[in-house]
Amino acid sequence: MIKVDGLRKSFHGQPVLRGIDLEVPDGSITIIIGRSGGGKSVFLKHLLGLLRPDSGRIEVGGVDLARLSGRRLDEVRKRYGVVFQGGALFDSMTCRDNVAFPLREKLRLPRPEIDKRVGTALERVGLAAIGDKYPEEVSGGMRKRVAIARALVTEPEIVFFDEPTTGLDPVLVNTIHQLIVDLHRHSRFTAVMVSHEIPEIFDIADRVGMLHEGRIVEIGPPAAIQGSQNPIVRQFIRGEPDPQA
């Protein structure tokens, strides 16, 4: 279980996170929605231990990430899989090597085992034939799928997705969502995902939380969020223009 308590963060005196409270139950898919620039990626980076909070607790499996560093932080990260907003594929390696990399370096599996697992992982994301192409030689959608394969190939307990479908065509959006649901059914990881795909996310999430002005203003099952009376949430999921903008 991930438990975040009163998480605050400012950059150069500008508050971005103003006290986030959130619980993510084991094995659930929790999706964070919110305006662009609202601090969703910043929030995820705290869960990854890439940014340190100004105050607050970030508990993962009972330990406070904000107090960990070095090897003990890495122990927590070994349970993670991460899909970054831009994919963050290693551009000096082929797509296949990108997927093989964590198996080789993190799990230190023997060669035949790596080949087998990479093959399966690429097949699951529909890229069995990607071969030895480099990340810049494939389309944006393929890159995202390679990034997902790389994040899941180690069979992590907790997976973070930062906008895994932004910028993809509607068919691909649904393909990737279906993929995430299938993989989730298969290995029961805990997922924290940031996404703008409304209404599609309501079909795949167990819980949806709305991040607004540095706080989680509402969180609950998809139906509750869709029927929310909170004007901020209603405006966001209906995509109404901002009266103040």
Partner: peptide
């Protein structure tokens, strides 16, 4: 990419 390495521990 540097962050990706970091979160792979």
């Amino acid at each position: 990419q540097v962050d990706a390495l970091t979160v792979m521990a």
